[in-house]
Amino acid sequence: MTPTRRKRLILIGLMVAGVAVAVGFALNAFNQNLMYFYAPSEVIAGEAPANHPFRLGGLVTKGSVHRLPNGLTTRFDVTDLTKTVSVQYTGILPDLFREGQGIVAHGKLNNDGVFIADEVLAKHDEKYMPPEVADALKKSKAAKPATGTAEVTP
């Protein structure tokens, strides 16, 4: 093996090792940054992680939205028509946020079982239902057909 070849081999070896370490690190970080989606029934059943942020989605229960006085903090309930979870959010709600609308919130559960959201999403046009929410509603309807009202057509 000529010296130049050996040098090049070492160089390539170093680069491969560098890339491998970098990718390993990236994948590890990737796993920690995955945010799973849970429907209210799953949260109530205790399936959602306690100390890790996740996404909660469902319909905003009619009549549940109220603002705490003098601030920008809002409380509302999110439901999949079977179970309901209370959500608290401080900040400006998206343009499309309203009662009866499907939303997805990012955040964590606190000790009282209230979901403290740091972001609330209600995007696209008025007909749009976040796909996870549509799915969750379908599931909960199937599980408990009696309560599934025709109010929602995903």
């Binding site: 970080a29 990737f30 940054n33 995955l34 945010m35 799973y36 989606f37 942020p53 996404r55 996870e132 799915d135």
Partner: peptide, 10 residues
């Protein structure tokens, strides 16, 4: 495998 989103921070 579940519905995930990959966080902005990643």
């Amino acid at each position: 495998w579940g519905k995930i989103s990959v966080g902005f921070p990643w």
